[in-house]
Design a protein around this nucleic acid. Structure first.
Lengths: 226, 226
DNA sequence: ATTCTTTATAATGAATTCATTTTGAAATCA
DNA sequence: TGATTTCAAAATGAATTCATTATAAAGAAT
């Protein structure tokens, strides 16, 4: 599949695919409460589908680890524990480090320019203290780096692990200090990318995740909910 | 969940769970031919189940990337390409490297002794040129190292990626030279583990995968089937 | 003969139905 | 009062049924 190919195949979606996506968003964005049981019937009524495609979707989400299915007992959104956070971030850091190495070797100048644009936007949002804009461009930058690795397996695994991290509501919170730190890290990310310094990029991406790890863990211990 | 806990919860399995496991084995062991279509009806008859649980299982396998589902067209075992092999192994190497780091810090003496036992068995199987025994104990050693990381996310992601690698039949083939090289690597793995040298263990596990990568790639290019 | 329609068959998508298990409230007993 | 048992209602597991889409063979047209 050529990335530059402007013609994309028309993707026809089955109900269960649609449901997987919608439910994933609901869970990641925290609209379904962890630990709370949700009966199939209610979900089916909300989405206006029968139980068959809904149950298919639930199996997929369970395989991804977003929900827990107990035979004959039903589905729960998986609770986030400190232990899970401590498991997730080192794996995410390792995947980001690899992404840094690979991206450097594969990224095109056009792609670097695109990310430079996002970087300028993210600087603006920091100056304007616009947090939701920050998250938007942060996501675009990191997705851009991942896509440039040209490694479908890495992209897929990263997405899976990142979505589990995302569920910690704390990921979307930041102290001003952490925000400032993150901006400094982003500067180093951009610099390493432009210089195509693989080692440096790999290291700073890993450090970026590890610093976020520290920040998320602090917020989790303070909040102690989710 | 405590690993040492001798009492395991009785696991009642639903049909679809059973099917996922059985189909996974069939695919990984190469009993279902990549690229070949398999109609639901045939599978249902073979396993003696109705379409409902079978279809649930297929969705899960598709989410794991073992099969491809096209709406209204059915299911295929995903073909392995050179590109996929080249994507898989670097990710696997990164995960193994992380496993090495973590294991060193967490592994108990009992667990090291258990792995030492497997190592003695694997040396025997090399001497006796018993390849299937070699693979058996190789699997046990690597599973033991993963389990000792105590990182459920890492264990899960590693399993997913490793199962995709496993599908390359070539993984289960080895030249005598490669086998000898692998045995040398195993010696270094054991030494690093006993000395709890994190850095060394991480490096040798990564190298172990990268050398396997080279060997698998060669066999793939020679064979050019699957 | 080759290509294009047409149409019957088969396969998949999704809703419904039936069977089994869980759940929780009412009834019973200590 | 509190614990245990019983049983009806609700939820889930799985099979069946119905609807829609793909497939491929037969016939028509060039």
């Amino acid at each position: 599949m050529n990335r530059a190919d402007p013609i994309k195949a028309i993707s026809r979606k089955t109900l269960h695919e649609e449901l997987v996506e919608r439910l994933q968003s609901l869970i990641i964005e925290g609209n379904l409460i962890p630990g709370e049981k949700f009966p199939e019937k209610d979900l089916c009524e909300k989405f206006g589908v029968s139980r068959t495609p809904m149950r298919e979707a639930l199996k997929v989400l369970a395989a991804d680890g977003l929900i827990v299915l107990e035979p004959n007992r039903g589905a729960w959104v998986r609770k986030i524990t400190l232990e899970e956070i401590e498991d997730i971030f080192p794996v995410l850091a390792a995947l980001e480090a690899l992404a840094g190495e690979l991206t450097c070797k594969k990224i095109t100048n056009d792609e670097i320019n695109q990310i430079k644009y996002y970087h300028s936007k993210i600087s603006d949002s920091f100056k304007n203290e616009n947090l939701s804009e920050y998250f938007k461009y942060n996501q675009l930058i990191h997705d851009g780096i991942l896509a440039a690795t040209r490694n479908e397996i890495l992209i897929f695994q990263h997405k899976t692990v990142a979505s589990r991290a995302q569920r910690a509501r704390f990921v979307a919170n930041m102290s001003y200090e952490r925000w400032k730190q993150a901006m400094d890290e982003h500067k180093v990310i951009m610099k390493s990318l432009e210089e195509r310094d693989c080692e440096a990029l790999s290291q700073v991406l890993k450090q970026h995740i590890n610093n976020k790890f520290v920040s998320v863990k602090e917020l989790f211990l303070k909040g102690e909910d989710v």
